[in-house]
Design a protein around this nucleic acid. Sequence first.
DNA 1: CGTATGACGAGCC
DNA 2: AGGCTCGCCATAC
Length: 125
Amino acid sequence: MAPQSNELPTVFERIYQVVRLIPPGRVATYGQVAAIVSHCGAARTVGWALHALNEGTDVPWHRVINASGRSSLPNDESDLPTQRTLLEEEGIRFDSQDRVDLAIYQWEGLDWPEIEDLRAAWFQT
DNA sequence: CGTATGACGAGCC
DNA sequence: AGGCTCGCCATAC
């Protein structure tokens, strides 16, 4: 959803759009999302975008973890469910070192034509 | 407008 | 395998 009708979506909005495509029970890495959004070194920006979300968001931020298979969130002292809990509720298992097996759970991503479609809309090419 | 700061990641020990 | 360094890039200030 663009802020103004004739304005291109911001980087954050493009990131959110991609994260919404991650199916339940799967995870993606920050770098993986960044690659689809076409900012190959911008994994940190994905983290920044997710950090900016508020509680009631419809963006499944918890499905994005780091390339080591771990949650990158600092220890939150809130009562909200942790990222791990949210993922476990979707059937994802963590190993004894708090790691997700990416070989099993990583989202396969998008096919090239789908990526092209997204970018065409984003950049009006 | 320069600097600092991240929910990162690849490469090297 | 695990820790460190350095590069990345959009924001914040």
